[in-house]
Computed example of a mutant assay.
Amino acid sequence: MVVVHPPTWPLRTAARLLGRGLNRLQRAPLAVDAHLRHALALSWAVPPATVADLPDPGLALDTHTGADGREWAFLAATVLELTDVRPHGVPPALGSGSTVLLTWSVFCTTTARSGPRTARGRVLRGLRPLAGWSSGWASVLGGQLTSRAPHGRLDGRFSPVGQQLQLDVRSGDGAGDLALTAHPGEERVPAGGVLPDARTARRFAPPPNRFSPDPDGVVVVTTRPDVPQPAPVAVDLRRAAFLERGRFAGADARLSAAFVLQDVDYGWRAGELHRTRGGD
């Protein structure tokens, strides 16, 4: 008896098309508009050896050398509360409700290899996401589909109390737990940091670019150019669970800068692939 097996090419074709579609999603093909209610960004200095293996091909660590000659790499925790999130051009009334996003990233640089010829060869500074969390299952699914970094769910809120801004984030896995109080209007550099003053610390405010690894290079997603620069802010940190686990447990991580931005229109452009493999 001859057994005839069904052809496997339909499954292979479907898997290939699914993979291509997912890869396109992870290249962030849509520009997005939103309104930003609150944003806090914190930057920690860590020894470069702690994160030396994290930059993908085409990326390099963005470092700072202190007055004592010691070199530091930097991590960032950014927390955004967004409303009216929608594709660019869609009316705000059709956007989503309030969403809180937390992302841990490492500061990196890359060299522009596409775009106008006058811009090619320019060094871009940005953040390479390591892990993220969102409130609401829809935003969690969106993060899982459009990011190559792990993405989970959180419960979190900003709570204005007088002149202070309190933040309390709790994640499902505990790794994203973050608690602090910010003091808008105060530009106090964190005690024990490696940056001597607020002017120097501004270099490690969140850069406008987000870097995502891609099979063909690096995808660069850029914040809208009309988004204002965040202001340095004093913070009292109570907990940052991400630094208590894995490679960062016991590492010499020094909170060195913090920034705040509130009540502005926000958004980002569609991702742009900078090829580091193959041709242009």
Rank of each mutant, 00 (worst) to 15 (best):
L180F: 04
L180P: 09
R224C: 11
L180R: 06
T200R: 01
G246A: 06
P225N: 12
R224D: 13
T181F: 05
P206E: 11
V235E: 06
R245Y: 03
P232V: 03
G185M: 07
R245G: 09
D236P: 00
V227G: 10
D236I: 00
L178Y: 14
P184W: 10
H183W: 12
T223Y: 00
P206S: 11
E187P: 00
E187A: 15
R188T: 15
L180Q: 07
V233H: 03
V233T: 14
D197S: 12
N209W: 03
R239F: 01
V189K: 04
P213C: 03
R210P: 01
V194S: 03
R239D: 14
R224F: 02
T200A: 15
L180V: 06
R210H: 01
A249Q: 13
D236V: 10
G192C: 10
F211T: 03
A182P: 04
A240E: 15
V194M: 02
R238Y: 09
V233F: 10
A234P: 03
P215F: 06
S212W: 10
E186M: 08
T222W: 01
P232E: 08
V233E: 08
V235T: 09
E187R: 12
F242S: 03
R203H: 12
P206C: 06
D252T: 06
D214F: 01
V219S: 10
A182Y: 08
A201F: 01
V220K: 10
P208E: 06
A205I: 00
R238D: 15
V218T: 13
L195Q: 11
P213W: 03
R202G: 00
F204H: 11
P184C: 07
D214G: 00
R224Q: 11
A205G: 12
V220T: 13
H183L: 11
R210E: 04
P230T: 07
P232G: 07
T222C: 08
D226E: 15
D214E: 01
P213F: 00
F248P: 05
T222V: 04
A234M: 05
